[in-house]
Lab assay of single mutants.
Amino acid sequence: EPREEEAEKYIKRANGDYDKAQELAKKDGNEEIAEAIKEYKKR
């Protein structure tokens, strides 16, 4: 799923820090991806 791939990219950029990844996504205006990262975190 493209959303998950995007989320993974942010998580990698944030060195595995989900909260930081979420912030990066929000900064880029990717609210949807920020949500996907939140879902990811719950797994």
Score class of each variant (00 low, 15 high):
residue 41 K to M: 09
residue 33 I to Y: 03
residue 13 R to S: 08
residue 7 A to M: 13
residue 38 K to A: 13
residue 17 D to Y: 02
residue 6 E to K: 06
residue 2 P to H: 14
residue 39 E to W: 07
residue 43 R to S: 10
residue 29 G to C: 00
residue 6 E to H: 06
residue 3 R to F: 15
residue 30 N to M: 11
residue 37 I to A: 00
residue 16 G to E: 03
residue 21 A to K: 00
residue 4 E to M: 13
residue 8 E to L: 15
residue 5 E to N: 09
residue 18 Y to E: 03
residue 35 E to W: 07
residue 27 K to Q: 14
residue 37 I to M: 03
residue 8 E to D: 07
residue 25 A to I: 02
residue 2 P to I: 14
residue 15 N to S: 06
residue 2 P to K: 13
residue 31 E to Q: 09
residue 5 E to I: 13
residue 25 A to S: 02
residue 28 D to G: 03
residue 34 A to Q: 05
residue 22 Q to N: 04
residue 21 A to H: 01
residue 28 D to P: 00
residue 43 R to H: 12
residue 14 A to Y: 02
residue 24 L to E: 08
residue 10 Y to S: 01
residue 7 A to Q: 04
residue 13 R to K: 11
residue 18 Y to K: 03
residue 30 N to Y: 14
residue 42 K to H: 14
residue 22 Q to H: 10
residue 39 E to G: 06
residue 12 K to D: 08
residue 43 R to C: 07
residue 25 A to H: 01
residue 20 K to Q: 09
residue 15 N to L: 07
residue 34 A to W: 07
residue 40 Y to D: 04
residue 14 A to G: 03
residue 42 K to N: 15
residue 23 E to F: 07
residue 24 L to W: 08
residue 32 E to H: 12
residue 31 E to L: 14
residue 33 I to H: 02
residue 32 E to L: 12
residue 3 R to H: 14
residue 21 A to S: 02
residue 14 A to L: 02
residue 32 E to T: 08
residue 7 A to K: 03
residue 16 G to I: 00
residue 24 L to V: 04
residue 39 E to A: 11
residue 37 I to W: 00
residue 24 L to S: 05
residue 39 E to H: 06
residue 40 Y to I: 15
residue 14 A to V: 04
residue 41 K to V: 07
residue 6 E to Q: 11
residue 15 N to Q: 09
residue 17 D to H: 04
residue 37 I to V: 05
residue 43 R to A: 13
residue 16 G to Y: 09
residue 36 A to T: 09
residue 1 E to M: 13
residue 12 K to P: 02
residue 28 D to K: 02
residue 2 P to R: 13
residue 28 D to M: 03
residue 19 D to A: 07
residue 42 K to S: 12
residue 40 Y to H: 10
residue 40 Y to S: 05
residue 6 E to D: 09
residue 12 K to M: 11
residue 25 A to L: 01
residue 40 Y to L: 15
residue 14 A to H: 01
residue 28 D to N: 04
residue 15 N to G: 12
residue 12 K to C: 03
residue 36 A to G: 04
residue 36 A to C: 06
residue 24 L to C: 02
residue 12 K to N: 11
residue 17 D to W: 02
residue 14 A to P: 02
residue 39 E to C: 05
residue 31 E to Y: 14
residue 2 P to S: 14
residue 13 R to Y: 10
residue 9 K to T: 08
residue 9 K to D: 12
residue 11 I to K: 01
residue 15 N to E: 08
residue 1 E to D: 15
residue 14 A to E: 03
residue 9 K to L: 09
residue 40 Y to M: 12
residue 2 P to V: 13
residue 15 N to A: 07
residue 13 R to Q: 12
residue 10 Y to L: 02
residue 19 D to N: 07
residue 28 D to F: 04
residue 12 K to Y: 10
residue 30 N to A: 09
residue 29 G to R: 04
residue 5 E to A: 11
residue 11 I to R: 00
residue 10 Y to F: 04
residue 10 Y to V: 02
residue 36 A to M: 14
residue 40 Y to R: 06
residue 43 R to N: 13
residue 39 E to I: 08
residue 8 E to T: 07
residue 37 I to R: 01
residue 12 K to T: 09
residue 22 Q to D: 03
residue 33 I to T: 07
residue 13 R to V: 09
residue 39 E to Y: 06
residue 31 E to D: 14
residue 38 K to N: 07
residue 31 E to S: 09
residue 5 E to W: 11
residue 35 E to G: 05
residue 29 G to P: 01
residue 31 E to H: 13
residue 11 I to Q: 00
residue 20 K to A: 10
residue 2 P to Y: 15
residue 24 L to R: 03
residue 4 E to D: 14
residue 33 I to A: 14
residue 8 E to P: 02
residue 8 E to F: 13
residue 22 Q to P: 00
residue 13 R to C: 11
residue 39 E to L: 09
residue 10 Y to W: 05
